[in-house]
């Protein structure tokens, strides 16, 4: 999961202390841009526009790791498109431009989402969901998913080690055999997740979960002036990109 920028670390930069909701607006707007445009230069620009935020937030290392982690997918997208488009259009140039666009689009998406997740504390994310009137149960489920991702991946590693220690060879056999090789890993993982879910439920009940219809929140997120400016700036940038299409007709 680290590849997708979920390894949030506490920080104090201006990007970190923005309200998650304002960052979410930025994320939505810029995601829309990546979907809307196909011109590789524009997509490159969208991608590059996220870089200053990475620098200001000081999350360069984790961001790089996200990008590097997604290189495999990017290569996959590139090759898949290249072959596919060449197959249908027969033009090498078209295929090349299109697959570069697709790869850039994916990279821009990864970068935008990385900025969001790398600078937003999971608990603030949950809180903003609550304040957006999403039922607390859903918000909590989301928060717990974030909390248990590392636990689960560590557990998967232990199980894999345990089964390999009993002679399981994951890389053995043809493709079907290889899928079957994972059964001794998946089953303990599923069973222990169920066990954990029961224990977590006990622990939650033991802490008065469900006592009141409307629970208190220790922190309430408030939009400040910087959020206002950030949203304004994001919207302006969004419109500037759109004007490329309106004024210059760039797709």
């Amino acid at each position: 999961m680290k590849a997708f920028g979920f390894d949030y670390k506490r920080g104090t930069s201006i990007i970190h202390i923005l309200d998650p909701r304002s960052k979410f607006i930025y994320t939505i707007l810029f995601t829309a841009l990546t979907v809307y445009f196909v011109n590789p230069l524009v997509l490159l620009l969208v991608f590059l526009s996220s870089v200053p935020m990475v620098i200001v937030a000081g999350v360069g290392k984790s961001w790089l790791r996200s990008i590097r982690g997604s290189l495999f997918f990017i290569a996959f997208i590139f090759i898949f498109n290249l072959i596919g488009i060449f197959w249908t259009t027969g033009s090498v140039a078209d295929a090349l431009i299109m697959s570069i666009s697709m790869s850039l689009r994916f990279m821009a998406l990864i970068s935008i989402f990385s900025v969001f997740f790398l600078t937003t504390p999971p608990e603030d994310l949950t809180q903003s969901m609550v304040q957006l009137k999403i039922p607390y149960d859903y918000a909590l489920t989301f928060n717990m998913a974030m909390r248990f991702v590392p636990t689960l991946s560590r557990e998967a590693q232990i199980i894999m080690d345990a089964q390999r220690s009993r002679g399981l060879e994951l890389e053995k056999g043809n493709i079907f055999q290889r899928v079957r090789n994972y059964i001794p890993i998946l089953i303990p993982l599923i069973i222990s997740s169920f066990r954990r879910a029961e224990l977590v439920a006990d622990a939650m009940e033991s802490r008065a979960f469900g006592a009141a219809k409307r629970r208190t929140s220790l922190y309430v997120l408030t939009m400040g002036r910087r959020d206002f400016f950030f949203i304004l700036f994001s919207a302006a940038a969004f419109l500037a990109f759109l004007s490329l299409k309106i004024l210059l007709g760039i797709q």
Binding site: E155, D161, A162, Q163, S165, R166, G167, P184, I191, S192
Partner: peptide, 18 residues
């Protein structure tokens, strides 16, 4: 190596699957 070295992990739930 596993044929020579038997490693029993702490938590049996991390290996029982059959």
């Amino acid at each position: 190596l596993a044929r020579h070295v038997g490693l029993v992990f702490q938590n049996p739930d991390h290996q029982l699957f059959a």
